[in-house]
């Protein structure tokens, strides 16, 4: 960290980092069994770095949890496992597949994406391990409903978010009090934007899964997006796969994660690309396009 002893000022990244570290430490101090959601995606990679910083020179005191849709980019899963092993962190994976077999998650006929099915899978995992707090990498700039969510987001015994009944959040004082069975979702990156995340990745020289960088891939054009060709994406009539240099901006269920055409092979090139971008990163997620309030509805059910 560079210190400025002339003006005692902080850059915006330093200020955001300090805020996030403070939040991590509050979680550790106020909850009995916190867990950190780690998918191997870029936001959770930043979260992991902040957790390391918050408890250095000690190790961060949270296990990692991933809700695996089974509809994955293999590069992401490899990265997730490798990073957790490097940090000697305990990684818990619960899959939508298992949740479906156990009857916890029930697919609706015709539903191809498994994002919705992550909700019951996540709630069951929180219950199984009696986690009272889950730290997530969601940001308020991602989506309109998120813009109104607290950093400490209270969830009732059903995991539900009630936007009209949120706890006021003032200064840097967070209210982490819970009754048994309730839990908290905590979002240390709430005030970060996509650009802040990439600048932080650049500053911290963080490793990323390769699919964030330009690579060639077979894709099809559907609803204004380039979707990756996979076994999970049956081609519709008239759809012709093309091979293009692409990268992903945000990673979800592979069947609904749009790729963007890109030649960016370094973090610096990605930053330049985002600075010029004219579409938000969530614009490449088909699950958010379904309706004006798609995210709000999923959050009310217990989604992150």
């Amino acid at each position: 960290m560079t210190v400025d002893i002339e003006t005692y000022s902080l850059s915006h990244l330093q200020a955001l980092e300090s805020e996030a570290i403070h939040i991590m430490r509050e979680v550790f101090a106020e909850f009995e069994r916190p867990v950190l959601m780690f998918s191997g995606g870029k936001d959770s990679i930043c979260l992991l770095r902040l957790a390391e910083k918050a408890f250095s020179p000690g190790r961060f005191p949270f296990p990692l949890l991933n809700i695996d849709t089974g509809h994955n980019f293999p590069e992401l899963i490899d990265f997730r496992d490798r990073r957790a092993a490097e940090l000697k962190a305990k990684l818990i994976v619960r899959t939508v597949e298992e949740a479906i077999s156990a009857g916890i998650a029930r697919p609706v006929p015709g539903e191809t994406s498994r994002n919705r099915l992550q909700i019951p899978t996540l709630l069951a995992a929180l219950e199984e391990f009696r986690f009272d707090c889950a730290i997530g990498g969601a940001r308020r700039d991602e989506e309109k409903a998120r813009a109104k969510e607290r950093i400490f987001s209270f969830r009732d015994a059903f995991g539900q978010w009630d936007p009209k009944n949120q706890r006021p959040e003032l200064w840097n004082i967070y209210n982490g009090r819970l009754h048994p069975g309730e839990n908290m979702r905590v979002f240390p990156l709430s005030n970060w934007t996509e650009m802040d995340v990439w600048q932080y990745i650049a500053r911290e020289k963080l490793d990323l899964p390769s699919i964030y960088f330009s690579h060639t891939r077979d894709v099809i054009r559907r609803d204004g997006q380039w979707l990756p060709v996979s076994d999970l994406l049956p081609l519709k009539e008239g759809e012709e796969p093309q091979t293009l240099p692409v990268r992903v901006r945000t990673i979800g269920d592979i069947s609904c994660t749009g790729c963007i055409e890109s030649a960016a092979v370094t973090v610096e090139q990605i930053i330049e690309e985002i600075a010029a971008a004219r579409v938000t990163e969530r614009g490449s997620r088909a699950d958010d396009k379904r309706s004006e309030a798609a995210m709000e509805d999923r959050k009310k059910e217990g989604y992150f």
């Binding site: 915006h12 308020r140 700039d141 989506e143 309109k144 409903a145 813009a147 109104k148 936007p163 009209k164 949120q166 709430s190 005030n191 934007t193 650009m195 802040d196 004006e292 309030a293 709000e296």
Partner: peptide
């Protein structure tokens, strides 16, 4: 800025909404 369904329906802002933008000088 009015993100929640009830807000759009009623044309009001219910809650604090956080927005982000940046210029070369400040975030």
């Amino acid at each position: 800025t009015d993100g929640l369904r009830a807000e759009r329906e009623q044309g009001i802002t219910i809650d604090v909404a956080y927005r982000y933008f940046a210029t070369p000088r400040r975030k």
